[in-house]
């Protein structure tokens, strides 16, 4: 058994690495691009002070100032970073935000929506194979449901307001005009900034509560290999949470959720001496992680509502029917009832 788990952990490790490495490479590439122009910092390779050439090739010097190759300037103005004459990373951030984040992010969200719609049209709702028994099993306690729904509702609010800040200019403004878009976005920004910390707090509570039940076990491998039977229609046994739920929990909720929370707090509370570069980097990570999380959340919301019969009931009332438990979570059913199928 322990060998099986060890083997399983290695496999999970490989899969996670395969997924995370490209993700990390993309973010590292962003980071390097912005980081290389870090303003107000002295490049160790360059002399601390470079004398402006008198009358010759001052353009080269100003280009160096622009790329922050020399010591920062001096000014009597007391506002933060006032001594930075020019910060080119601002334009780098603009190109990343208006470029890959807006364009790829938009296509990602659209592609996932289309894929799920097609899946629903082709496969339809996963029905219960056996009639409901009327015997109910406690699946989620009141505390779990409370935490889940606070996170869920705040997530939807944050996703809608966040997406409107990114795409409102391209979707709302052409139809309703600048004034309507500006008024909506004013509301969106405030809702986003005030809901964010609430989401982060309850997200941590949720992670703590469900971490143990989301640890990977040997049965998950079969689920992952057969993609939960989503395509074949067969039912794969699983514990309290199946591999799909665990993947969403660790990659979506934990890694992406915490990334969004931490970077969101940096952006939301600019009170601790954050520089413009800190804000640019925080924004890039925040927006990228949020777009991935929204894309994954579509799948979670789909399978938790219209995608699977009886799933929503568990999170709504806390109880699921025995027939549902037997079909979707056979191992869990066996654990809590002590009965074999």
């Amino acid at each position: 058994m322990s060998r099986l788990i060890a083997c399983w952990m290695r496999r999970v490790g490989r899969c996670t690495a395969a997924l995370l490495v490209p993700l990390l490479m993309v973010t590292a590439a962003y980071g390097a691009e912005v980081g290389s122009y870090r303003g107000g910092r002295i490049d160790p390779q360059a002399p601390a002070v470079m004398v402006v050439p008198q009358g010759h090739n001052a353009a080269a010097f100003y280009d160096g100032v622009r790329r922050s190759l020399y010591a920062p300037g001096v000014t009597s103005i007391q506002t933060p970073e006032a001594n930075v004459l020019i910060q080119s990373e601002g334009n780098t951030w603009r190109q990343i935000r208006n470029g890959p984040i807006t364009v790829w992010g938009g296509w990602l969200i659209l592609a996932v929506m289309v894929a799920i719609t097609l899946f629903y049209l082709v496969k339809g709702t996963i029905k219960l194979h056996e009639p409901t028994t009327g015997r109910k099993l406690l699946r989620f306690t009141v505390y779990e449901r409370l935490v889940h729904w606070v996170v869920a509702i705040s997530f939807v609010l944050l996703a809608l307001t966040g997406l409107s800040l990114l795409f409102g200019k391209h979707l709302i403004e052409p139809i309703f005009g600048t004034s309507v878009n500006a008024a909506l976005l004013w509301v969106a920004k405030n809702v986003h900034n005030y809901t964010g910390p609430l989401f982060g707090f309850f997200l941590v509570l949720m992670i703590v509560r469900w971490a143990k039940d989301n640890l990977f076990t040997s049965v998950d491998w079969l689920w992952a290999k057969k993609f939960g039977g989503l395509l074949s229609g067969e039912e794969i046994p699983s514990g309290r949470f199946n591999f799909g739920e665990k993947f969403w929990f660790w990659v979506g909720v934990t890694v992406l959720g915490l990334t969004i929370t931490v970077t969101g707090l940096i952006l939301d509370f600019p009170l601790f001496g954050q520089t413009r570069q800190d804000m640019q980097l925080a924004h890039i990570f925040h927006a990228s992680a949020a777009l991935f999380m929204i894309a994954m959340a579509f799948g979670h919301i789909y399978i938790g509502t219209i995608g699977s019969e009886g799933s929503l009931e568990g999170m709504k009332t806390g109880y699921v029917d025995e027939a549902w438990a037997k079909q979707h979570h056979a191992v869990w059913y066996q654990e809590i009832t002590g009965r074999r199928q």
Partner: peptide, 14 residues
């Protein structure tokens, strides 16, 4: 500060 003055190489030649 809508406008500010920044000095480069303060106290140095140039």
């Amino acid at each position: 500060q809508r406008r500010r003055v920044v000095t480069l190489n303060e106290g140095q030649p140039g």
